[in-house]
Measured scan of single mutants.
Amino acid sequence: HHHHHGSGALAALHAEGPLAGLPVTRSDARVLIFNEWEERKKSDPWLRLDMSDKAIFRRYPHLR
């Protein structure tokens, strides 16, 4: 159930192989992290948004 927010940013994801479903670039990863943060913020208003490279690598090590 993907609803768009204002920016309408869509992340490019790997379609197949071992990385299927994972973001292709760091900016794609940022979109995913932001979208998930927006969702989680509803139940956790104090949740901090962390889109640093460090956060991205921790989450998606293949982007190193």
Rank of each mutant, 00 (worst) to 15 (best):
H1P: 10
H1Q: 11
H2K: 10
H2G: 11
H3M: 09
H3K: 09
H3N: 09
H4Q: 09
H5N: 12
H5D: 11
G6Q: 12
G6V: 15
G6K: 12
G6T: 14
G8A: 11
G8R: 10
G8L: 11
G8C: 12
A9N: 14
A9V: 12
A9C: 13
L10N: 12
L10H: 14
A11E: 06
A11D: 03
A12I: 14
A12T: 12
A12L: 15
A12V: 14
L13W: 02
H14L: 03
H14W: 14
H14Y: 13
H14T: 03
A15P: 11
A15L: 13
A15G: 12
A15N: 12
E16H: 10
E16A: 08
E16G: 09
E16K: 08
E16F: 12
E16D: 14
G17Q: 02
G17W: 03
L19H: 08
L19W: 10
L19C: 07
A20Q: 13
G21W: 03
G21E: 03
G21N: 06
G21T: 03
L22C: 06
L22G: 01
P23Y: 00
P23I: 01
V24C: 09
V24S: 03
V24Y: 04
V24K: 11
T25Y: 04
T25G: 08
T25P: 00
T25H: 06
R26Q: 07
R26Y: 11
D28P: 01
D28Q: 04
A29S: 01
A29R: 00
R30D: 03
R30S: 04
R30Y: 08
R30I: 10
V31C: 09
V31E: 05
V31M: 14
V31Y: 08
L32W: 03
L32R: 02
L32F: 05
L32H: 03
I33Q: 02
I33N: 00
I33M: 13
F34Q: 06
N35V: 12
N35Q: 15
N35Y: 12
E36N: 04
E36Y: 04
E36V: 04
W37D: 00
W37S: 01
W37L: 02
W37Y: 09
E38T: 14
E38W: 15
E38D: 08
E38F: 15
E39D: 09
E39P: 02
E39K: 09
R40S: 10
K41N: 09
K41S: 11
K42G: 08
K42F: 07
S43F: 12
S43R: 11
S43M: 14
D44Q: 09
D44V: 05
D44P: 04
D44A: 06
D44F: 11
P45R: 08
P45G: 07
P45Q: 09
P45N: 07
W46A: 13
L47P: 05
R48P: 13
L49I: 06
D50I: 04
D50G: 02
D50H: 04
M51K: 02
M51S: 05
M51Y: 07
S52I: 01
S52T: 08
D53F: 09
D53G: 05
K54C: 11
K54T: 12
A55W: 04
A55R: 05
A55I: 08
A55Y: 13
A55C: 06
I56E: 00
I56D: 00
I56T: 02
R59P: 00
R59Y: 05
R59C: 05
R59F: 05
Y60T: 00
Y60R: 00
P61Q: 03
P61K: 04
P61V: 03
P61T: 02
H62R: 01
H62I: 00
L63I: 03
L63R: 00
L63V: 01
R64M: 12
R64Q: 10
R64H: 07
R64P: 04
R64W: 10
R64G: 08
R64L: 12
